[in-house]
Write a protein that binds this DNA or RNA. Structure first.
Length: 695
DNA sequence: GGCTTTTGTCATGCC
DNA sequence: CTGGCATGACAAAAG
């Protein structure tokens, strides 16, 4: 049963990975609701060490294994023992060896405390000796641990001969390797570590896990009344999945669509590479060992550190005989090494540090639990958002590319810069024929509405695409027909010179002549054309024999305008017409400015929308990255949990059933093993608490 | 000839 | 109150 389950699970994992790698999206959501832990593992824990391992093995270790993504043969996976073992080895690989060592060291000294306690609960103390041992034993540990976990696990994990019969039967090669590593670690620790009187550390000559465990059990469990659950694992690690249902349920949210790149990254992340990249820890390097030690020391935070529930009350712990405290011993003063801070730092990638600090800060009673919860909440909300917006990384990237390419505003294609320049050039060139026309364009921008300057800025920002066309529109608005301008220079001011409020001197040159009308009339053909081109007010002015140009009527300042009127003897009708011309002329320019302004507003809004969309795309991408990191962290926690739990042994040297026991972080910073029922209870309580808090 | 866009004009409100 | 500006609405002109 167990073996079948394993094969099935791993095969599915690999298959899923391959599918994801080739771009096939595996919609496992429909299976999430099923009560099949393996599927959960496969689906939700895509980033699990197993998956990673598979991935790497397929690509690197199993060269030419002949697995083509498009012709995946599950039989290979099911029957490839070596591959499976390697996968498991990698899984172990991810879990720091030092962690295990730390616990081992701890437990013994702690025996005194919980010696009277039954085997129901086990408190894993943060290895006091671990940290200390890290520095002094660095070299030794390095060699031993690294050999065990780095090389052997990676390459020989599956093939490694079992230490004993039990291990061979129930524990795959990986476990054996782990056992060996533990032995190594134990030896090293013992050799380098001066254990306290109480410390019943296993004999350095422990040749096998089975031996080591019993010895420990005897020493710790019998003498101190403590049980040593740390070594050989008789049950399949997959059974532990049930214990992680809570976490898994949380991780269900991660069913977010991930593209191939994401999946690959995920694999890497779960593997040692991830550690290296995110934590600057090299799995195979001595540094990794150090890191592992730190991880091991994480557990001991001053606050509650519960994987499932932060609400393990100390009273219940103390009073409950079911709880076994293995390492409450503070004599070594190392329990503090299990600080929540360290934990958070380890579990969260650098980019998440800020978040970690917030959620797992000292002020928080339940660093890990809180952290996970917060992460879950965020993830949920983010996922919801993503779902609502129908966002996926691919879309985001595409969107981003679109924005990056910045095709500009979706303006009429006819409004190309070229057309603009041409039109502008033509108009300006034509207008340049007139004396004052050259200044019209710039002056227009300088007068009243300052949209022109804004346009310039906008063009610079937007690459001059899309906005200039509008500018050309304005040009047309401002400029009258070139021919008209040519023959009616005075109209030019009306058309595009908005400097009516400027000093009249600039416009005066033609005024004295006052012959504009006569000038026009001098040319018959042009005059006819001009008659058509003249505005109604101009016609009216000419009909009423207004002695000055409409330009002056419109653009002269009030004082000068009144002064001009006073110079002439004008009838009431003429004065009325002049005032109407002035009013309409000003209103005309105002209308032009108004329209220009309105257009600018629209364009600016369009640009703002574009910017916002770009920002949104960026944020969504960041969200995906964060979710990825969170997932990786969860996977790490899960792996760590399995690693620790799998090594626990009762007084009889038997592993604890994940169905009956669960690990939790106590308020005093220790890790305890409690009955599953109690853990579930507390988990439920915490859920309620979380809900209330959210409300 | 009809449609859309552009431009001019009016009315109105505000300063 | 007058002058001027801004703007919605309308209509003529232009395309």
């Amino acid at each position: 049963m167990l073996s079948l389950k394993k094969y099935f699970t791993e095969g599915l994992i690999q298959f899923t990975i391959l599918l994801s790698l080739i771009g096939v999206r595996v919609d496992v959501d429909t299976y999430l609701n099923s009560q099949l832990p393996p599927l959960r593992e496969i689906i939700l824990g895509q980033s699990s060490a197993y998956t990673q391992t598979q991935f790497h093995n397929l690509r690197n270790t199993l060269d030419g294994y002949g697995i083509h993504p498009k012709s995946v043969d599950l039989d290979y996976y099911f029957t490839a023992r070596r591959l499976l073992n390697q996968v498991r080895a990698l899984d172990r690989f991810q879990v720091p060896t030092t962690e295990v060592n730390a616990w081992l060291v701890h437990r013994d000294p702690e025996g005194s405390v919980s010696s009277t306690q039954p085997s129901t609960g086990i408190t894993l103390e943060n290895g006091s000796g671990l940290q200390d041992g890290t520095s002094p034993d660095n070299g030794v540990r390095e060699s031993g641990a690294e050999q065990g976990f780095g090389e052997e696990l990676e390459d020989l994990g599956a093939v490694a001969p079992p230490v004993n019969g039990d291990l061979t039967k129930e524990v795959p090669g990986v476990e054996d390797q782990t056992a060996l590593s533990l032995e190594e670690c134990l030896r090293l620790l013992e050799a380098t570590f001066p254990f306290g009187e109480n410390s019943e550390f296993p004999a350095a000559d422990v040749s096998t896990l089975s031996e080591a465990v019993p010895s420990e059990s005897r020493s710790a469990g019998v003498q101190n009344g403590l049980l040593s659950p740390l070594l050989a694992e008789t049950e399949s690690p997959f059974d532990l999945e049930q214990q992680w249902q809570d976490l898994m349920s949380i991780m269900e949210m991660q069913a977010m669509e991930v593209n191939n790149t994401t999946a690959e990254t995920l694999y890497n992340s779960t593997s040692g590479d991830l550690l290296t990249s995110n934590y600057s820890l090299a799995p195979n390097t001595p540094i990794n060992q150090n890191v592992s030690l730190h991880q091991a020391s994480l557990g001991s935070c001053t606050q509650d550190f519960s994987l499932f529930s932060s609400e393990i009350e100390s009273p219940s712990m103390a009073g409950s005989s079911a709880l076994l405290q293995l390492a409450p011993d503070n004599s070594t003063g190392l329990n503090t090494t299990f600080g929540s801070t360290n934990l958070s730092g380890i579990f969260f990638p650098p980019q998440l540090n800020s978040t970690v600090n917030e959620t797992a800060g000292p002020e928080l009673p339940d660093p890990l639990g809180g952290l996970l919860d917060e992460a879950m909440l965020d993830e949920i909300s983010l996922m919801d958002l993503a779902i609502e917006e129908g966002f996926n990384p691919v879309q985001a990237s595409q969107l981003e590319e679109e924005f990056d390419s910045d095709s500009g505003l979706s303006l009429d294609s006819s409004h190309s810069p070229a057309s603009l320049s041409s039109s502008e050039a033509s108009s300006s060139s034509s207008s340049s024929s007139s004396s004052s026309s050259s200044s019209s364009f710039s002056e227009e921008g300088a007068v009243g509405y300052s949209s022109d300057s804004e346009n310039v800025d906008f063009e610079e920002t937007e690459g001059a695409v899309g906005y200039q066309p509008e500018y050309s529109k304005f040009c047309r608005m401002s400029y009258q027909d070139p021919s008209q301008l040519h023959y009616l220079p005075y109209l030019e001011h009306v058309g595009h010179n908005h400097t009516y409020n400027m000093a009249p001197g600039a416009l005066d040159p033609e005024e004295p002549k006052l012959p504009n009308i006569g000038k026009k009339s001098s040319k018959e053909k042009p005059s006819e054309f001009l008659d058509k081109q003249m505005s109604r007010d101009e016609h009216r002015a000419r009909a009423m024999k207004i002695p000055f140009t409409n330009d002056k009527i419109i653009n002269l300042p009030v004082e000068e305008f009144n002064e001009l009127l006073s110079k002439y003897q004008l009838s009431e009708a003429q004065l009325s017409l002049i005032r109407d011309i002035r009013r309409r002329g000003k209103n005309k320019m105002a209308a032009q400015n108004c329209r220009k302004r309105k257009l600018d507003t629209i364009l600016n809004l369009e640009r703002d929308v574009e910017d916002l969309q770009r920002d949104k795309s960026k944020l969504l991408r960041e969200k995906v990255e964060f979710l990825k990191s969170i997932r990786q962290m969860k996977q790490k926690v899960q792996n760590l949990y399995q690693e620790v739990f799998g090594r626990l042994r009762d007084e009889n040297g038997q592993p604890y059933s994940p169905n009956q026991y669960a690990l939790q972080y106590a308020s005093d910073g220790s890790v305890i093993l409690i009955p599953r029922t109690l853990a579930d209870q507390q988990a439920r309580r915490q859920e309620r608490k979380q809900k209330d808090r959210r409300k």
